[in-house]
């Protein structure tokens, strides 16, 4: 075995000594692990209608099929797509999603009430809502909002794929590299997804460029009744 490979393996093993799971963002940090705030992935891509952009925000990952029916969005967890459209890495637009009484309500696409890590719901900018698609439904429920925006909320297959188990074996020193073919650790698992399709014209991207990040936030002061 090459000395360099050994060094890499040892340093990897040291780095993950805390037992941190390497994934996209699944269970990335102590405060969110196993919580409704735990983000798994963000996707941003051009829609089937190429005049639109699609935003996918996934959370609560590694749901076995047997656990998916009981998984639920949380009325105290605000999910936001934050969008910088002028290149300064500060959000100029937000799309906010929050669960209430079987639906997810969406707000935003104006200037956010606040920027940064503390925020409020943009109540004045209601975009629409969608019923959460129940686990086991034969078709996804699609909501239609203002400006031709489309919404989805509910359980989906986790689109992320990675041989996480073999990576752990490499880090743990019981393997020297990945297998070919590898085995997708996320196969057969589900996430809770929020999907929003928005006309590009609403995003006002300077020079066609956006910076996007997905956040989850917990309501201050405990639970709503």
């Amino acid at each position: 075995m090459q000395r360099k490979t050994i060094v890499i393996m040892i340093t990897c093993a040291i780095l993950i000594a805390g037992g941190i799971v390497y994934a996209a963002d699944h269970m990335d940090a102590p405060a969110v692990k196993g919580q409704t705030t735990d983000i798994t992935d963000l996707y941003v891509f051009q829609g089937k209608n190429t005049d639109n952009m699609v935003f996918v925000g996934n959370s609560q990952g590694l749901l076995a099929p047997s656990a998916t029916g009981a998984a639920s969005f949380d009325p105290n967890t605000l999910i936001q797509f934050k969008i910088d459209n002028n290149g300064d890495n500060v959000e100029d637009l937000v799309i906010q999603a929050i669960y209430k009484d079987g639906k997810v309500n969406f707000f935003g696409l104006g200037r956010p009430p606040l920027t940064g890590t503390r925020t409020k719901i943009a109540e004045a900018n209601f975009l629409g809502s969608v019923d959460v698609t129940p686990y086991g439904a034969s078709h996804p429920i699609v909501g239609y909002g203002s400006y031709g925006i489309k919404f989805f909320a509910g359980p989906r297959d986790d689109p992320f794929f990675f041989d996480l188990d073999q990576f752990h074996a490499i880090l743990g020193g019981t393997a020297t590299g990945f297998n070919n073919p590898g085995k997708d650790t996320f196969a057969g698992t589900n996430v809770l997804s929020i999907v929003v399709e928005v006309p590009k014209s609403l995003l006002h991207a300077q020079n066609g460029k956006l910076g996007v990040w997905l956040t989850t936030s917990s309501q201050e002061g405990g639970s709503a009744m």
């Binding site: 963002d25 940090a29 705030t37 963000l42 925020t119 990040w213 917990s218």
Partner: peptide, 9 residues
């Protein structure tokens, strides 16, 4: 008010 718990780009 809501306080940020998780984020990813």
């Amino acid at each position: 008010y809501f306080d940020q718990a998780d984020q990813m780009g």
